[in-house]
């Protein structure tokens, strides 16, 4: 079964998701990767107002290719989430409810996901052309000087993802691998 979900994420939506569920995300999501995370983290630490509203939102770890004329965005698949781990607990504390990326998260991040009731989605790494089809509008809303690492506001329709870590800390990477591991 594929669950349609919309942003901002509600408590009910988060509670209904389990590791391994397939979802189609619609609404507004924001891109942010390494450099943008460091800047957002520092702004929160300094008590400054952020360029994006985090409450209930989803951040997509992506640095897209530039858009060709007539397209909303170029290829836009997920980057490795682990590099954002240092910054993620503070973002979750500040209201962030969802993340889309690929790869494992640290214990600190899993703990923060459970503590603040959030969810970590996986999108298919290396399927940037396929995923870009679900991004209907894009606009740079912060840190334009970072080039591909700028923060984009994406309007997505039926963006395909899988729940990797749910609000209880269940982890599809562990569950899935355990099922097929022979050594």
């Amino acid at each position: 079964m594929i669950k349609p979900i919309t942003t901002p994420l509600t408590r009910e939506a988060i509670n209904s998701l389990r590791a391994g569920d397939k979802v189609l995300i619609s609404g507004v999501i924001y891109s942010a990767r390494d450099a943008a995370h460091r800047l957002l983290f520092e702004m929160i630490k300094r008590g400054e107002e952020l360029p994006i509203e985090l409450e209930g939102q989803i951040i997509y770890y992506v640095g897209p290719c530039p858009a060709k004329p007539g397209r909303a965005i170029g290829s836009a698949g997920p980057t490795t989430s682990g590099r954002m781990d240092l910054y993620t607990p503070l973002l979750l504390e500040s209201g962030l409810k969802g993340m889309i990326g690929k790869g494992e998260r640290s214990k600190e991040v899993v703990d923060a996901i459970v503590k603040y009731g959030a969810v970590y989605f996986g999108a298919i790494g290396g399927a940037g052309a396929l995923l870009a089809d679900s991004i209907k509008e894009s606009k740079i809303v912060a840190f334009e000087e970072l080039g591909p690492e700028a923060v984009y506001r994406f309007k997505v329709e039926n963006f395909p993802a899988i729940v990797v870590i749910d609000k209880d800390g269940n982890d599809l990477y562990k569950i899935g691998v355990e099922k097929y591991r022979e050594i």
């Binding site: 290829s75 836009a76 940037g128 052309a129 870009a132």
Partner: peptide, 8 residues
């Protein structure tokens, strides 16, 4: 005519 992956 898109990049296979955004990480080119």
């Amino acid at each position: 005519d898109l990049a296979i992956c955004q990480d080119t």
